[in-house]
């Protein structure tokens, strides 16, 4: 039972991914296939983001109240950068402050970071694919895959 409670999010994401994947491999129409790719990829983003979540966490944006402390740290670092050997000490100094800062539970920022990149990759792929569709439409006058194959067979 705990399994279901703990994992159902993943299962829904898997269902979404597989729906997208199905649209891709069902191969009805070129644009439909691209839409499928899009849904497939978007669902993968969801998979990653789901991983990063921590119960009762908040977005990894440090609260303004810590701004002052962070500011102090900043000085420490700059100071450390000027005198390399002091860097370590400065970092340690920060950890003390950091404990203060992470009293707040943050969700993991890394999946977000990765997915920002992945979203860009996704849109790039989509744009390229759509450009190809436009080209194919110019050449064949249709975007139905079986019609195109038919035309190629006859040519």
């Amino acid at each position: 039972m705990t399994e279901i409670l703990g994992l159902y999010n993943y299962w829904i994401v898997i269902f979404l991914m597989m729906t997208g994947f199905y649209i891709v491999i069902a191969r009805e129409n070129l644009i439909k296939t691209i839409i499928g790719l899009n849904i497939f990829q978007t669902s993968v983003f969801l998979l990653y983001i789901t991983m990063g979540k921590v119960t009762h966490g908040t977005a990894p944006i440090l609260k303004a109240s810590h701004g002052g402390e962070s500011h102090g740290v900043e000085h420490g670092v700059e100071h450390g950068a000027e005198h390399g050997h002091e860097l370590h000490a400065a970092a340690e100094g920060h950890v003390d402050l950091g404990v203060d800062a992470v009293k707040e539970v943050y969700s993991n920022p890394i999946p977000s970071v990765l997915m920002l990149t992945a979203i860009v990759v996704g849109i790039a792929t989509t744009a390229l694919a759509l450009a190809l569709v436009v080209r194919i439409r110019e050449e064949y006058g249709t975007i139905e895959e079986d019609e195109i194959l038919e035309m190629d067979r006859n040519s």
Binding site: G67, V73, P109
Partner: peptide, 27 residues
Amino acid sequence: IQVYPNPSFVEKSQPDMHGLPNVVTAV
């Protein structure tokens, strides 16, 4: 994913990135 690496990105990014509040941007 939440316990490794230690210190976490949230903690580490503070001194490294001069306290940029948005950790995602910082990373």
